[in-house]
Design a protein around this nucleic acid. Structure first.
Lengths: 241, 241
DNA sequence: TGTTATTTGTTCGTATGTATT
DNA sequence: CAATACATACGAACAAATAAC
């Protein structure tokens, strides 16, 4: 029994995705929803604002909440999603090979990236993501051992995120991502099926816990033809509560 | 006199950027801020949640709001920003050439992209963005004339966004962006200084007004070495007010 | 054109719960 | 245990935009 507004958000979101509330239609008013869910208007508004932030609806004052049409196509590398979560949504045929798994001291570059001292040991994980048999993505993860103890190769084959959230019971909170396009390195060429492509899309990911501690730096190197990123952006004002 | 929480957000945000509240320090408590700004706690919380959503702070229950360190580097192609706004922040040396400017009927593809009928006339604008003299970005804009009347070549040389927001007084609300990497077309090769690069980063942008009407479709084609995208993502739960 | 009802936006007050110090 | 600080929830009032008549 908690987070009533999140439950309402999820119910409305799934009703929108199921087409119960179709695109371009108008949701019941806040007062109607207040009665329907037997709660307060404030709680309904939190749920609606979440829907708006995530691109499900557009709220218009004096009019109502219009259901948007964006979520359909929008399959996400957007937001904070692990490869396993993604693979599930895309419909399988995805595999992961662990190419390297080691616990070591960081070099200078890594010390800068993770804001740590040289004594802190670091997990180095290198994984190759295969889609329909082709080696498409090279993931290089670096995790602070003190913050993520007990990692195993088996866990890496499955999902590091899942381990952190479910077993360590740590809350992953936010991430900064940076996208660039670079020349393939020798390692990229060796580890991926580049098929004549002469560039890779590099996603650098800095991942933080709930308490604002940086625990992971990931470099994800994608074959360019298989890379796609969808983003939903609102122009600074955000209905927020 | 309006939007008290936005004013507070802006004041706190600029104090964070100025270093008045340095990274890793803790903001005054919600109750303290309530007194400082002579307002209610709910209003302070809205401002703080905006700061959290935009990556300025991390709120930790029982502890306080920690100032984050992310905004420094994070110069934005992120969010909804026009080239002119960007160029200003990056420090000039940016120019725009208008290569094509026409009012015409849409072809089938465009009718699909903009969800319109064939009778609706469309502005077609093709612009080349130069940075330090090199032709780096090819912007192809398609705008619904009915929604954006009175466009001129001069406006395109300056900023279409500025015209829409300041002259037409329309509120641009949200956009869906899609990033891919493609082979350069013959047009890309002709219009840009590709310097031997064999790919372009394509950003497809669907831009909407406040009332959820789609008014613009933009395809922005970047030379890969000059492209960089920074994103700040929170993992689904969002303190939201 | 103008008035009224509806609907969302903002602010304030209060109360309870939970985690940290 | 107590004090502090954030999270959630409910209620109420008024403002502002829209729609309908």
């Amino acid at each position: 029994m908690k987070n009533k507004y999140l439950l309402i958000y999820e119910e409305l979101a799934s009703k929108i995705q199921d087409g119960y509330y179709p695109a371009r239609s108008i949701l019941p008013s806040e007062n109607e929803l207040t009665e329907m869910f037997e709660t307060s208007r404030e709680t309904i508004r939190k749920a609606l604002n979440l829907l708006a932030q995530n691109g499900f609806i557009q709220k218009i004052r004096g009019k109502g909440s219009i259901v948007l049409d964006l979520k359909k196509l929008q399959f996400p590398i957007s937001g904070l999603v692990s490869f396993k979560e993604l693979a599930g949504k895309m419909g399988q045929k995805a595999e992961t090979d662990v190419a390297e798994f080691a616990l070591a001291f960081p070099d200078d570059d890594l010390m800068r990236q993770l804001h740590i001292k040289g004594e802190e040991k670091i997990w180095k994980v290198c994984r190759v993501r295969k889609i329909e048999g082709e080696r498409i993505i090279l993931d290089k993860d670096f995790l602070v051992e003190k913050l993520v103890p007990g990692l195993t190769e088996e866990i890496c084959r499955n999902s590091i995120f899942e381990y952190i959230e479910n077993t360590l019971n740590q809350k992953i909170s936010f991430a900064k991502k940076e996208f660039t396009v670079e020349e393939p390195t020798e390692e990229d060429r060796r580890m991926l099926d580049l098929e004549g492509y002469h560039s890779v899309v590099v996603v650098k990911n800095y991942i933080y816990f709930d308490d604002a501690s940086l625990f992971q730096y990931t470099e994800s190197r994608h074959r360019p033809d298989k890379f796609r990123f969808v983003d939903f952006a609102r122009r600074m004002d955000m209905p927020s509560g």
